[in-house]
Design a binder for these strands. Structure first.
Lengths: 76, 76
DNA sequence: CCACATTTGTCCGTATGTATC
DNA sequence: AGATACATACGGACAAATGTG
């Protein structure tokens, strides 16, 4: 196991944000969509979300979705 | 539900670190011990750990334990 | 070296709550 | 009222590292 699945997911999404494929204000794919895409369980997706959330890159809102924050594309 | 259990656990441990009750290099109670103390499942403890880890306050090592990092007591 | 217990790391499936549409 | 979607939590399973005997 070179790297944990949730870290891979986190890094993948982080790169998408850094690259601009995901821009501030954008809504990430839904939970189920991410589970399907990465072929992982909710646990993995949630852990990845928690990491990115701690980094201040994303912000989830109940009933709506997970959104890329403003500071996500900045240099910090 | 005022606050999620895993956030309460994270905050409690964070305060212990900030207060100096847990010093850099110290080993946190074991997983099971924390589960018992907070009367929570492993999921809650793990989520709290993930948060504190992302904050750079702690660092876990398989087979050993979870330790308070150096920068934990600093002003950052 | 091997066996064992301990402890963290990772992941799964499910259930329930809550907010939005 | 119902569907969708995130948030939280539970409990269990197996892997990997460590220390001890």
């Amino acid at each position: 196991m070179s790297e944990a699945a949730y870290l891979q997911v986190a890094r993948d999404l982080r790169e998408q944000i850094r690259d601009g494929r995901l821009k501030p204000g954008d809504k990430l794919p839904s939970f189920n969509a991410l589970c399907a895409h990465y072929e992982a369980s909710n646990t993995v997706i949630r852990a990845a979300m928690l990491v990115l959330k701690a980094e201040g890159l994303i912000d989830g809102r109940q009933g709506k979705g997970v959104y890329v924050t403003d500071r996500a594309s900045k240099s910090n």
